[in-house]
């Protein structure tokens, strides 16, 4: 053990207080405080902040929102700007509930996220988002039964050989917590059973698609607008996804734009603008007439409803996660 010697370092002979010129030190001090105040304070001043429209939510809807926002800026150059951030459906709903954003783009009904009716929320149903199963081209399987799909996603089916395909291990590619397409899988295919914990978790449709395309043996699910030729689309039971007739595909989420209370005139105008966008199918949003309305009964929106008629939250979400902790 080496001996430790404490050396008292000579204090730097700083200027003695007597010589401290008031101007220099106070000036610099004032500069620091003023700088901090300016940087944090000035933009916060209500006068400086514009009445922008903040939209957060499903990554599957982001391309549509960006295209719409761009057109909005061109068509209404003097109106408030639209600010879009991704983050997932749950994120959009939660941040809308807190008031962090002005509108949420979601492919999960808000009542199902919050565990109660989103009373007074405005809603614009944009249409259906078919959730399509995609696999790596090398797996050698083009159709699965619902039971086999559940087996693949939960990790019971380990190799494609078990389904008559290639001798390739199954790699499940899934989405993170906030995703609407994961929600569809959990509720419409798995009945609430968790997916295998060996799955690769990606945080957007695009990332799932790219991972499936690049990983031998991979299976994933994406919103239909994101399908590319780099992957093979899987049939489910008797159904096959047809781009020309997407309404017949059984797995789908309902895409919606949600906002709270009345909304500012600008927000209302933007929602109506979004409702008028004719080419939603380009972004994978199909069917249903888009009309703004007020969310009254969750039943009407196709949200899951419990036996007592009350809306069901994401199953088993404990304390607060389904809204209880918001008091």
């Amino acid at each position: 053990m080496p001996m430790r010697v404490r050396v008292q370092r000579p204090r730097r002979p700083g200027p003695s207080p007597r010589y401290r010129d008031a101007w220099g030190s106070r000036g610099a001090g004032a500069a620091v405080l003023l700088g901090l105040a300016l940087v944090i304070g000035a933009p916060t001043g209500t006068g400086a902040r514009p009445a922008g429209i903040r939209v957060m939510g499903a990554t599957s809807l982001v391309p549509f929102l960006i295209a719409t926002a761009s057109r909005w800026h061109v068509a209404h150059p003097t109106s408030p700007e639209v600010h879009v951030a991704a983050g997932g459906s749950l994120a959009g709903i939660y941040q809308l509930e807190r008031g962090t954003v002005d509108a949420a783009a979601s492919d999960i009904p808000p009542s199902a996220v919050l565990g109660r009716a989103a009373a007074g929320w405005g809603a614009l149903v944009l249409g259906r988002l078919p959730v399509v199963l995609v696999v790596h081209p090398g797996v050698g399987v083009t159709r699965v039964s619902r039971q086999n799909l559940a087996g693949l996603l939960t990790g019971r089916v380990r190799s494609w050989q078990e389904l008559g395909g290639a001798a390739e291990n199954v790699v499940v590619v899934t989405r993170g917590l906030g995703s609407g397409s994961l929600w569809v899988m959990q509720h419409q295919v798995l009945g609430g059973t968790p997916l295998t914990d060996r799955a690769v978790v990606q945080w957007s449709n695009g990332a799932v698609l790219k991972t499936v395309a690049a990983t031998p043996g991979a299976i994933g699910f994406v919103d239909s607008g994101f399908v590319r030729r780099s992957v093979v689309v899987l049939g489910l039971g008797g159904a096959m996804y047809q781009p020309r007739d997407p309404a017949r595909w059984p797995l789908f989420a309902t895409a919606g734009l949600y906002w709270r209370q009345r909304g500012t005139p600008a927000l209302t105008a933007f929602v109506q603008f979004a409702a008028r966008q004719p080419d939603r199918t380009r972004f994978g949003i199909v069917g249903e007439e888009a009309t703004p309305h007020e969310e009254r009964s969750p039943r009407a929106r196709g949200a899951p409803v419990g036996r007592d008629g009350r809306p069901r939250g994401l199953d088993g979400w404990p304390d607060g996660l389904a809204g209880g902790g918001h008091s």
Partner: peptide, 8 residues
Amino acid sequence: TGVNAAGA
């Protein structure tokens, strides 16, 4: 920063 839209 959000996601870019044209005409910013």
